[in-house]
Write a protein that binds this DNA or RNA. Sequence first.
DNA 1: TTGTACGCGTTATCAT
DNA 2: ATGATAACGCGTACAA
Lengths: 366, 366
Amino acid sequence: MAGDRATIADVARAASVAPSTASVVFSGRAGVSEATRRRVLEAAARLGYAGPDPRAASLRRGRSGIVGVVFEERLGAAFLDPVKTLMMDGLAEAVAPMDAGLLLLRDEPGAVQDQPGAEPGAEPTTAGALSLQSAPVDAVVLVGCSGRLAESLEVMRARGIPVVVIEGDAGEGIPRIELDNREAQRQAASHVRGLGHTDVVLLTLPFRAEDSRGWVTDDEVPVIEVTRHRLEGAREIYPQAPVYRATASLIDEGVAAGRAILAATDARVRPTAVIAQSDLLAAGVVRAAEELGIDVPGQLSVTGFDGVAVDGFAPRRLTTLVQPAAQKGRAAGEAVARMLANEPAASIRFTCDFRDGDTTGPVPRR
Amino acid sequence: MAGDRATIADVARAASVAPSTASVVFSGRAGVSEATRRRVLEAAARLGYAGPDPRAASLRRGRSGIVGVVFEERLGAAFLDPVKTLMMDGLAEAVAPMDAGLLLLRDEPGAVQDQPGAEPGAEPTTAGALSLQSAPVDAVVLVGCSGRLAESLEVMRARGIPVVVIEGDAGEGIPRIELDNREAQRQAASHVRGLGHTDVVLLTLPFRAEDSRGWVTDDEVPVIEVTRHRLEGAREIYPQAPVYRATASLIDEGVAAGRAILAATDARVRPTAVIAQSDLLAAGVVRAAEELGIDVPGQLSVTGFDGVAVDGFAPRRLTTLVQPAAQKGRAAGEAVARMLANEPAASIRFTCDFRDGDTTGPVPRR
DNA sequence: TTGTACGCGTTATCAT
DNA sequence: ATGATAACGCGTACAA
């Protein structure tokens, strides 16, 4: 067919050279005479050949040079979460030396019929859709995908693709990058306790994907590991404290939660401290308190988690736990690099630094 | 070779079916009897076949389902810039319906020998490296790649891959998503002018990639289009104003620039207004002014650009131009979708909204 | 140093 | 509804 794109074979023909020789020229390896090399490049220029087709090359090589980064949430949401942003920064930095690209993916089951065990009746999704099942990745980093983690892991296992998990229980043999969430949160609670607070509310992240906002009954256990571990840490100090759940790590969520938590007009039945599972939530609570004329930390102490720079919070400084978010990403990237080099990659556990700010103080007298 | 991964041919054989039939089953299309379908899926399950190899499929189909997003800077830097983050959010949202993935790429020439016109002497890069030349993308979004824009465009043109450019001059026939940078910045300058300021400094973004910080001489012209257009806009009102150049859009850069600009201890030779090309820079200048005991807006007016939420700036509000960052991303994604559907995609020009904050005021008496 | 031959795993087309 | 065949474009032993 005339008018088609030139292939390496066309180039080779035009340069009076074998396709294999042309291939060697384009892959930049030695072993080709200068004259031949030049002839091939000239022929390529003449034919408008832009180099080997990456699809064909990666089929042949068995590698695509792509590392998948899988988020549970809407792709865009990942960019709005400062912790994930920092993590991506570290990850990007770590894969750069491998000359790999990062492919952003959502944690979705993908085309059902692709799964060997699937029910025959299941409806097919669009052909060609890019999912965990069908992404041309050499390795994958799963980010906080507690909801469908098992499912995703199974898909990658079946495909024989290396996986690194950030903040999630991956099971045997899968490198995980995690935080001492429990211990860190215990430390925050302990600090609050040390200030004399006994009437405390725990403000948590969602228990599962797409969770609702509100007070939580005792028997509910978070599916999402980060939430669960931080809650357990706080529980070690405050086993009886009431729990209020937010639907996301957002300042607005914190404001909404704060209003609900601080609704009691009678200061005697109002909590004197809120232990939040994220800085954004904590910042929201502080804002809600200000709205209600409640002084922080005079009448209310608030702690956060993450240690990210919270927009619009200065000059205040949250009392919080600083987590090494960028380092987590970097560690994940390095683990991927090792796995692709067939070296063993170990799990890593990072710790948080407690940072005392100006949002906590001694329990108020009543 | 035994021990190898099962292929669709193996599955077909095990199910006593033609490979093409098995393929149809996995691509989920109609036209296969329920019995056959079940047989194939069972065989697949038995053999541990995890579905079609995406590399082979994309070679055959001629599409990878991947949209490249190209940044000029370090990949990670893109995540730290709030404007880009918002844009990515919009872009991700727009490509999601296409079930495409976003591949993050850096704007690098890539393997030199891949370029037909390259000098024979050029050193080869690592084989298999992922670059603009060799990324398996169906389309590409170039983000603010003014430096190597022409080069990148040429690469994609040679590869025959659709391109959308955000904030850059792409030339004929290439959809561009842009902002009325000049007009917007003129508006800000005009506002400052209306307040009576005559002694003004223009604080700009870098003129080119990897630029240096400092005062700029009159004959230098920014290569980066955003910088140039905003500068031209300010120049329409203040043709003679001295120009100070920052090396990046960061609060710290703004602080450093602010210190230099406000260095004169004698208030009479100090500027009374700084027109900055980004909110982060502006916020930095305000911070530097506070450091030096200069009241904003009493003794100094400062304007920003972007309208992003600047971390740690509340309760202050920058006087700035709010740009629709997320919408820009969304528009780019929609343009990509149209081009992949062989429909024409038009360029779009967005406008900014002037927002009056508390960082500008009347010129002080002397 | 160059060329030959084959396989990578899939899917589109067309015939049955 | 199913099957046979032929690309898709390239890399790589191995022979020359």
